[in-house]
């Protein structure tokens, strides 16, 4: 849970962008849309876990 978490997300973003361009250029728009959607879902799941950790720590600290 540190800088490498940010680098992981940035790496997924770059890979998805490249894949999207690749698939669009080769005429497969649907697959391109699906891959970018899949990348988005993966990153969202990672971030949701991180945000739930944040909310748990805030609840414990501030006694909410």
């Amino acid at each position: 849970m540190d800088v490498d978490f940010i680098f992981k997300i940035a790496a997924i973003g770059i890979i998805v962008t490249v894949l999207h361009q690749l698939l669009v250029r080769s005429g497969r728009e649907e697959q391109a849309m699906l891959t970018s959607l899949a990348g988005l879902v993966v990153v969202l799941l990672m971030i949701v876990n991180a945000i739930s950790d944040l909310f748990v720590t805030v609840k414990n600290l501030f006694g909410l």
Partner: peptide
């Protein structure tokens, strides 16, 4: 998403 992740960290 990157700014959200950085904010969480």
């Amino acid at each position: 998403l990157i700014s959200l992740a950085a904010g969480v960290i």
